[in-house]
Design a protein around this nucleic acid. Structure first.
Lengths: 243, 243
DNA sequence: AAACCTATGTACGGCAACGCACACAGAGAT
DNA sequence: ATCTCTGTGTGCGTTGCCGTACATAGGTTT
């Protein structure tokens, strides 16, 4: 579940730079952080942070991606944000809150680099490029969450499924996503049957094809044409902030 | 619409400290900012920031409160957050984004203190208590937006109306809110008729009473019993972060 | 007091999504 | 080869909210 790096303390640079935030750091900042980075292998469904729980690390995903979820008292859930190689999990640590009232769960198996909170904070407090980058990313995440709020209110399950597939595809190297309708339903905050019906329609239109937990993205262009504006808004804002 | 302070440059301290963030500042930080503060009187419906527009100031509301809204291409709107005396409008300026893709609109007429972006940034970059406070507030706002995302997905118009009334009441000194069903419908992202129906039910249950743009909060306890958990989650998290 | 505007009330058909129940099928286990 | 589990398909009736249309009632203007 949690696998440490092989022998030496310093981590492979080009691997760690697979995370876009780490990749954007100037050499000196990266070198300071490097010794504190530790690769981790995440498996699907693993809980990275529990709601309100103590956070010991921040995580910079490279090939993995992580959902930010809220769970209601009655057990129903909905996703508010999605973090992959373009971001970092654990912003509450530098924002000063230490915890958040939501859960972070692995949505795509893969690798992330983690760092102890203190090491991260030391660099953050220098006030240089690292701080800048973390804050700009946080703003991009705010846009994502905001757009999710509005999208949840105004758009159909089918449109939201398109958006979710596109976002997930952006974080995945292959065209095949490993996830069941059931899993997606918890992310979108709808019934499993609702996902099945929407997925059927997308399949009929030739955008995707699926069997038992494997979804193939067949026609990204068509998905883009079918999705609500929310997808592009978040994408554009991310590009504007972090280029 | 925009009224400047009377004679002297420095603003009345106890008035400006009506904003809870300014109130929490240590004396030295407050004194540095003080000369840059300027009182403004906002009227209902006024647009503070346009989506994607240039931001020249940050605003610290005291008696006013401001909605953060997103407007879709087709003109439909929904609120993602609400800022009053406990917060600040314009976080994008210190987060490094300079603008945001959403609009800020006055939802309750009243006063705010504004400050030029540069003056604010100079203090922010000192890395002291002001920076700390702004970041912690931003985290509280993230919680509010996140909870709105989830609430929009999982709760009924009636529950969301309760939440909205309670939040607005918290930012208002009186028990009377000045707003029409139409206005509220744009905030909740539903039809005007939907608000009318929900408001009727709350009135029948004795929680509120209303006539033509005036809503009286009659029984806060009952509203609290009727609202979804989202209200308390946001409230608690805010207290934890900024207590 | 009449005219007018704005805010709220009411009604009707329609649809998307819900909750529940159960059938069927792919994939691994015995 | 059969069993079992998990994932997907389908069919109800129900409900919450939508879109539209129009009626009534406070307030304001003339």
């Amino acid at each position: 579940m949690v696998q440490k790096a092989k022998g030496n303390n310093a981590v492979n640079e080009s691997e760690a730079r697979g995370n876009r935030l780490l990749a954007s750091l100037p050499t000196d900042a990266f070198e300071r952080l490097r010794v504190h980075l530790e690769p981790i292998s995440f498996s699907l469904g693993e809980v990275v942070y529990e709601s309100g729980g103590h956070m010991e690390h921040v995580y910079f995903p490279t090939t993995s991606h992580i959902s930010l979820l809220y769970t209601m008292i009655d057990g129903s859930t909905a996703e508010m944000g999605l973090v992959g190689q373009e971001g970092v999990v654990g912003i509450a640590l530098f924002m000063g809150g230490e915890t958040t009232p939501n859960r972070a769960m692995v949505q795509g198996a893969g690798v992330a680099f983690r760092m102890k909170a203190k090491a991260m904070l030391d660099e953050f407090k220098r006030g240089g490029e690292f701080q800048h980058l973390m804050l700009r990313y946080t703003q991009a995440l705010i846009t994502q969450i905001s757009q999710t709020a509005v999208c949840n209110r105004l758009h159909s399950v089918e449109q939201r499924l398109c958006r979710w597939l596109l976002m997930t595809h952006d974080l995945t190297q292959s065209d095949e996503l490993q996830m069941t309708h059931e899993f997606i339903s918890h992310m979108l905050g709808v019934r499993r049957e609702g996902v099945t019906m929407a997925a059927q329609r997308l399949q009929e239109m030739g955008m995707i094809s699926y069997v038992r937990g494997h979804i193939q993205i067949l026609d990204r262009q068509q998905l883009m044409a079918h999705v609500c504006e929310c997808y592009q808004v978040v994408k554009d804002e991310h590009r504007r902030l972090l280029g």
